[in-house]
Amino acid sequence: MARWGMVIDLEKCTGCQACTTACLMENSRLPGEMWQDVLFYSEGEYPSGKLSWLPRPCMHCENPSCVAVCPTGAAYKAENGAVLIDWEKCIGCKYCMIACPYGVRFYAEEKQKTQPDIRNVFPPSGDKVWDPPYKMPEHVQDPKHGVGIQPKNVVSKCTFCYHRISKAPEGTTDLDPNDPATRDFTPACVVTCAPTARFFGDLDNPESNVRKLIAEKRGTRLLDQTGNRPQVYYLAGESPAIPETRSVRNPKT
């Protein structure tokens, strides 16, 4: 089985956040529940000020600290490399949110930042937090893998679009959105990325495009010193956009 990983080429990334909205749409996320956010950093002063940005998905770590701290076994590392949450086991204690060095886990708080609260506009049916008309089709939702609309009082996070990648035929090395044969299995953010800054493939396969990119363009991992060993690699290119102030948890501006 493939061990999926993502490569993000920062030289190509334009900071447009199509990844963000594609994810919100594909995964029926609440406003502000941006599994795939882009962080902006303004540094320096006129006339040599600098604006840079960093797309930040879940890193789907090889050694995920969120899984280590989860008291119920809800957070787990799936066989295909994705770090997932079993919503049937999650108790919403948020330990994982504290343990994650990348700030990529989310909890639908009682008071939504964006008011009026959309959960009151599309009120939940059953145990879910909301029920929008544009929700992911019921048959695709999969709470054991943290896919779809979450029940109340659980943590949510990027699943690498588990509902898509898990349907890829065995032996697929790369999920290329431009290839009709693999497009539907490719994560939403990778499908839509207009400058083609995102690549998705099997990190265990030395023949995969992602492995070649990591080798040729010297892929690097964010906060590698934590020992989490992310499965998301960044290519800094000739004009690296990696910010000087690498605070990725609580960005101000």
């Binding site: 199509a18 909205t21 207009a194």
Partner: peptide, 14 residues
């Protein structure tokens, strides 16, 4: 579009 969209393109259902 070539299979791609900008951030606004995904807002249609909303």
């Amino acid at each position: 579009s070539n299979g791609k969209l900008c951030p606004k393109g995904h807002l249609g259902a909303y």
